[in-house]
Design a protein around this nucleic acid. Structure first.
Length: 249
DNA sequence: CGAGCTCGGGGGGTTACATCA
DNA sequence: TTTGATGTAACCCCCCGAGCT
């Protein structure tokens, strides 16, 4: 998004910037508003949404982008341009303080807005354009804000899940460590009694990880992919989960 | 039918601001 | 009042799939 959006939407800054994607200008909008630096040009918006100082104009279709033939494509392009205009407008008001400084203003969603977004997220964690528009209208937000909220929400969900997974792996590790200690101790005891090691100790490690209930331990010829269950369908090998069945080993 | 291109959208990562202890 | 931690809105960059030429 960001500059790419502006670029892709056919809007260009009137600075003689190249239009080819591989010749992207190193000057970004954010750069123009870089803290501490005085931008050499300002982006302001008059009441009728026309932009002073910065020349925003539709890129002619003879450029990089191919001409739009279908109605659908034209509609999409119009929608895209509208959204871009709105985005540009929002940037202006977002970045420009009353005193003209360029700090990023941060909006805080109300509880009601968050609740509705949460509710919507529970039903579908992704947005289709129509749903986005509807939500934006209902919440009196810009579609872009709804889009960003969903992006962030998905990221938070994933982060939480990762944390949960991490905790589970830690527990699993602890269980295995403990089991390993116990087995080492047992082995030492057996050695000290001078008993021959039990059969399972002579088997490959991979075989040991198989569930005994499968009754395939030691069966080197019964590969996991060749097994067929009672239903006649191929069954996946039943590996031990030491986390849920720590006493199994 | 396949290659090349555009476009939209998602993920990952980051920044900056708001809030709270 | 200040400060560090935390939450999160907004952003950028990259990638991928769909659709079109």
């Amino acid at each position: 998004m960001g500059f790419d959006d502006i670029h892709n939407s056919g809007l260009v800054l009137g600075l003689g910037l190249p239009s080819e994607p591989d010749q992207r200008p190193c000057l970004k909008l954010d750069d123009l508003f870089e803290k501490g630096s005085e931008p050499s040009l300002t982006l302001t918006l008059s009441a009728d949404q026309s932009v002073d100082h910065v020349n925003l104009q539709p890129q002619d279709s003879g450029g990089v982008s191919s001409p739009c033939n279908g109605t659908l494509k034209r509609e999409r392009k119009v929608a895209c341009e509208e959204e871009e205009r709105e985005r540009m407008a929002s940037r202006v008001c977002t970045y420009e303080d009353d005193d003209g400084s360029n700090g990023r203003k941060k909006l805080r969603l109300s509880k009601a807005q968050s609740a509705l977004l949460e509710e919507s997220f529970k039903q579908h964690s992704t947005l289709n354009p129509k749903h986005k528009q509807e939500l934006a209208k209902e919440l009196k937000l810009r579609p872009r804000q709804v889009e960003v909220w969903f992006q962030n929400r998905r990221a938070r969900t994933k982060l939480k899940q990762t944390e949960v997974d991490c905790e589970q792996l830690k527990k699993c590790f602890e269980t295995l460590t403990e089991e390993n200690r116990r087995l080492q101790k047992e082995l030492q005891q057996l050695k000290s009694l001078n008993f021959p090691p039990p059969l399972y100790m002579q088997l490959p490690a991979a075989t040991l990880s198989m569930c005994p209930s499968c009754e395939r331990v030691g069966g080197a010829t019964t590969g996991p992919t060749a097994d067929v269950d009672d239903n006649g369908s191929k069954s996946k090998p039943h590996f031990y989960n030491l986390l849920t069945n720590p006493s199994a080993a």
